[in-house]
């Protein structure tokens, strides 16, 4: 069951279109999975539309010309085609939320990291980086905190991080206040999508040695 959702402020930015592209994408993917947030967003869109389209500015003659030109355009039947892209790893097929499907075809393969961890970077052209991350059963990410913020959406399976448990569809925001060590004991492992705007900062053990170089992993 989904327990963690985007904040009201995040949904509001999304509905207004004032969010940055990375945040918008991951909120959108969460909405594909979460009926509850979707109906909240529908409601917010309705009232925002009423509010934003309540006032009028009278038209000047150029607009009559605009109207004439528009009706000369042909109908565009079909709209944006829906994609059916899945993500494959290690012989397993993952169905992705609609918002992420287009990006699954753009990843350049998976790289194996430490600790039963697989990572596939997605080039969104945004500040920061976005990855699909897959943890095999018993896999873990070394304990770390964040210099910036990290948004994570659980796409399939579940994991824990020493602070709490996360399930498919959960929307997780981590920043400098959180130090955690994600790991999973689920048999089917766990696939997440994550966007970070700054390199991770490792906090314990040998992994601390990574810190001076974490920008290398990051870039």
């Amino acid at each position: 069951m989904i327990k963690l959702h985007p904040s009201y402020a995040q949904l509001e930015r999304y509905v207004e279109g004032s969010c940055n592209a990375g945040e918008g994408l991951i909120v959108s993917a969460h909405l594909d999975m979460c009926l509850q947030c979707r109906s909240k967003v529908t409601e917010m869109e309705n009232s925002l539309a009423d509010k934003m389209l309540a006032n009028q500015v009278p038209l000047d003659p150029a607009y009559a010309e605009m109207c004439r030109k528009i009706v000369e355009l042909p109908a565009e039947i079909g709209g944006t085609p829906a994609l059916h892209q899945t993500l494959e790893l290690d012989g397993r097929q993952f169905t992705l939320p609609r918002a992420l499907r287009r990006y699954a075809s753009q990843i350049n393969g998976w790289s194996h990291m430490v600790g039963k961890l697989w990572q596939a970077r997605v080039d969104l052209g945004i500040d920061g980086r976005a990855d699909f991350i897959y943890m095999e059963k018993g896999g873990s990410v070394p304990e770390h905190t964040h210099r910036g913020s990290e948004l994570t959406l659980v796409l399939d399976g579940e994991f824990s991080d020493g602070l709490r448990d996360y399930d498919t569809g959960d929307f997780i925001l981590c920043d400098g206040r959180h130090t955690h060590m994600p790991h999973t004991d689920a048999d089917e492992g766990c696939l997440v999508f994550s966007i970070v705007d700054q390199p991770l900062h490792f906090t314990s053990g040998l992994a601390r040695l990574l810190n001076p170089f974490s920008h290398l992993f990051f870039k």
Binding site: L25, T80, A99, I126
Partner: peptide, 11 residues
């Protein structure tokens, strides 16, 4: 060069 377009965010 952001690759994300509005239809991904809001279909």
């Amino acid at each position: 060069k952001e690759d994300i377009c509005s239809e991904d965010l809001w279909p």
